[in-house]
């Protein structure tokens, strides 16, 4: 029930390998990995709600975009510093997740999916409507000068590939270990049990609504952190990231890697990136790959990569 040495070894090992990758990977792949690490944080946030709590949201683009805009807008318009903007991004994520959570958690099942999707759609339309500040689909480009970090004579260049990779990895490592801790904590067990049998949990004296709301907010914060980091590291904030497609992608990544596994989101995001990368050499039909993968997954492989590994061989996987 507690975090075992084996758990620590596995997770710290993965982080160590990713650290080494910074020095071993060719330039192009290091760039891909930087993106994957940030998006894997997005997927981990999604997984907390979908995998562990059993709540299928179709609106997580809204949390990602809350972080993206929450960080990008003050940086661009008000000239706030990078760390402060990252903080406002997280705040935006908490606020949006809390409001959406309180409302959407009144519904269950299919209605929950549709309500989250609709709230996300409102958010997306909002990014288009307030085009004076967001520049809609065209988006805002955060210049290198805006994104330079200075503390006491020491400066950090966020467009340097190695710096970018290390920051992405740092965020990933923090969230991964937070997930591990969460999953092995009483709260994590509470969430899984709610997924399995909500009514029983209520009759064991658990405040189910509060637990689910906490899960939504924590999930929202992780996704907002990913969004804020994405904007700050790659220098672009656009409404495309708020569209329904960015609600579907984390679902796809988590399904592929294995729902309710700590490392599945990373694996799923990485695989999907390279599947699309390679297939785009053969065909431009990117959407087809996404669509076919989704259908094949739900039909034949509903537990995903790590989910199947856990079922067959490694029952202890968190």
């Amino acid at each position: 029930m507690t975090i075992t040495t084996r758990d620590w070894a596995l997770h710290l090992g993965v982080i160590a390998i990713l650290l080494a990758a910074n020095f071993l990977l060719p330039e192009y792949h290091r760039g891909v990995f930087s993106r994957v690490l940030v998006l894997a944080v997005f997927a981990m946030g999604y997984n907390l709600l979908f995998g562990y709590t059993g709540l299928l949201s179709l609106g997580h683009a809204m949390f990602f975009a809350a972080g993206l805009y929450g960080a990008g807008l003050p940086l661009y318009h008000l000239g706030w510093s990078v760390p402060v903007s990252f903080g406002t991004g997280l705040m935006a994520g908490i606020a949006v997740a809390a409001v959406v959570g309180v409302l959407a958690l009144r519904t269950t099942g299919v209605a929950f999916m549709i309500v989250t999707m609709m709230f996300a759609q409102v958010f997306y339309l909002g990014t288009l409507y307030f085009t004076t500040w967001t520049r809609g689909e065209e988006g805002l480009v955060l210049s290198q000068a805006m994104r330079s970090v200075e503390f006491g004579g020491w400066s950090l260049n966020l467009s340097d590939p190695s710096t970018r990779y290390m920051l992405a990895l740092a965020l990933f490592a923090v969230v991964l270990l937070a997930m591990l801790w969460l999953v092995r904590s009483p709260f994590g067990r509470t969430l899984v049990a709610i997924r399995e049998n909500e009514e029983r949990m209520r009759m064991l004296g658990y405040d189910v609504f509060r637990a689910k709301l906490t899960a939504v907010v924590v999930s929202g914060v992780f996704c907002a952190a990913a969004g804020a980091a994405y904007g700050l590291l790659f220098g672009y904030v656009g409404s495309g990231f708020a569209s329904i497609q960015y609600s579907i992608l984390p679902l796809l990544w988590v399904l592929l890697g294995g729902a309710a596994t700590t490392l599945g989101p990373l694996l799923g995001t990485l695989f999907m990136f390279y599947i699309i990368d390679y297939s785009s050499g053969v065909t431009s039909a990117y959407l087809l790959v996404v669509g076919v993968t989704l259908i094949l997954l739900v039909l034949f492989f509903p537990k995903g990569l790590l989910g199947s590994v856990r079922e067959r061989w490694l029952g202890w996987l968190p």
């Binding site: 029930m1 009483p186 067990r189 509470t190 949990m201 064991l204 004296g205 658990y206």
Partner: peptide, 9 residues
């Protein structure tokens, strides 16, 4: 354990 955890919490 879910019961016991609730009581201990």
């Amino acid at each position: 354990a879910l019961s016991v955890q609730r009581r201990l919490l």
